[in-house]
Computed example of a mutant assay.
Amino acid sequence: MAHNLQVLGFGALAIDDIIYVDRPLSAGKGKVTNRTQDHGGNVATALVAVAKLGGRAGFIGWLSDQPLTDISARELERHGVDISFAPHRPDAKPIRSVIMVGPEGDRFIAYDDDVPHGTSESLADSILAQAQVLLIDGYATHADTIVARARKLGLAVVADIEWTIGPATERLMSLSNHLVLPLKFAQAYSCETDPTSILRKLWSDDRSAVVLTDGERGSYIRQTGDAVLWHVPAYEVKAVDTTGAGDCFHGAYAFALTRGKQPVDCAVYATAAAAISVTGPGGRMALPDQSACLAWMVKENAPVPRAIAPAD
């Protein structure tokens, strides 16, 4: 069937109260320089990034059955994310987060995630089959049958996982053919420290890519059919707020997949998008459009992927 949407995703929505302070977070005390509120959630922000880049994105996680009071849902719509296929339940609500941001853009996030997670098990295959990519986060352990169905239907599953709850997370990772993970989580999960060792350890025959993101140090990639492992350096930027940078990376990576790009090229594109996103406040306020990303990618000092080791 025709792909009416390119990227679908489900995960927790969030409302973020963001506090900017004048000293590093390690200082223990400092003055508030600014306060703002933004909407977040790993997958939700990634989908907003897809829409901002010009893609067709749809959210299929739980929404409140009171649409007029569901401000998180309205915010997704405002940014161009389709919510018409999302299931509803009376107890659905967003996570509430407080984010402290230091002068160098580093942040600490405190959140309360006692909300419904996953999505409806009755979600129709015809909805999933509209898209080319399914974006998920660690909360997708609550609906791994949906992830399995998406893979069976031929969707690429891009997983943003930051913690493990044991066998349920392991199953979720086995169902995901594009693991796009923070390096720190991957180190803890794999019991390895070197990125090349982790890329080899997390590999499986049905994997399309493993991508390890490491902030200002860039990302490390293994892709199917390639004899080498890759490193994509990060851009040198003055970070205002790193909130949502990883989400932006995931959204841009997923969007690039829908355009037929190989994983390394997806990571190059996502690196530009994430770099732009940290130059402004909040998790969504500085998300870039397609023209901004393309302009950054042709800069004289734009990062160039380099082979770092054999794949095996």
Rank of each mutant, 00 (worst) to 15 (best):
V81G: 10
V81A: 13
V81T: 09
V81R: 08
V81F: 15
D82Q: 09
D82H: 08
D82V: 01
I83R: 06
I83V: 14
I83C: 13
S84Y: 02
S84C: 03
S84G: 09
F85G: 08
F85N: 06
F85A: 13
F85S: 11
A86C: 13
A86K: 13
P87M: 07
P87C: 05
P87K: 07
P87L: 04
P87F: 02
H88C: 15
H88W: 14
H88F: 10
H88T: 15
R89D: 07
R89Y: 05
R89W: 12
R89A: 04
R89M: 14
P90L: 08
P90N: 02
D91Q: 11
D91L: 08
D91V: 01
D91A: 07
A92T: 04
A92F: 03
K93T: 04
K93A: 13
P94C: 06
P94I: 01
I95C: 14
I95P: 12
I95W: 10
S97L: 12
S97D: 12
V98M: 14
V98S: 05
V98L: 15
V98D: 01
I99P: 14
I99V: 14
I99L: 12
I99R: 02
I99E: 09
I99Y: 05
M100S: 11
M100P: 07
M100E: 11
V101E: 11
V101A: 00
V101Q: 07
V101K: 01
G102H: 05
G102N: 08
G102E: 12
G102T: 05
P103L: 04
P103W: 08
P103N: 03
P103V: 01
P103K: 03
E104W: 10
E104M: 05
G105W: 06
G105Y: 12
G105D: 08
D106I: 03
R107A: 01
F108E: 10
I109T: 09
I109D: 09
I109G: 02
A110M: 13
A110E: 06
A110Y: 14
Y111N: 03
Y111D: 02
Y111Q: 12
Y111I: 01
Y111V: 04
Y111T: 03
D112T: 10
D112G: 06
D112M: 04
D112V: 07
D112I: 02
D113W: 00
D113A: 00
D113H: 03
D114P: 03
D114T: 10
D114Y: 11
V115Q: 01
V115Y: 04
V115W: 12
V115S: 00
P116W: 00
P116Y: 00
P116V: 03
P116T: 00
G118M: 12
G118R: 10
G118T: 14
G118D: 12
T119E: 11
T119V: 09
T119H: 02
S120F: 02
E121S: 09
E121V: 01
E121P: 12
S122P: 01
S122F: 03
L123T: 03
L123E: 06
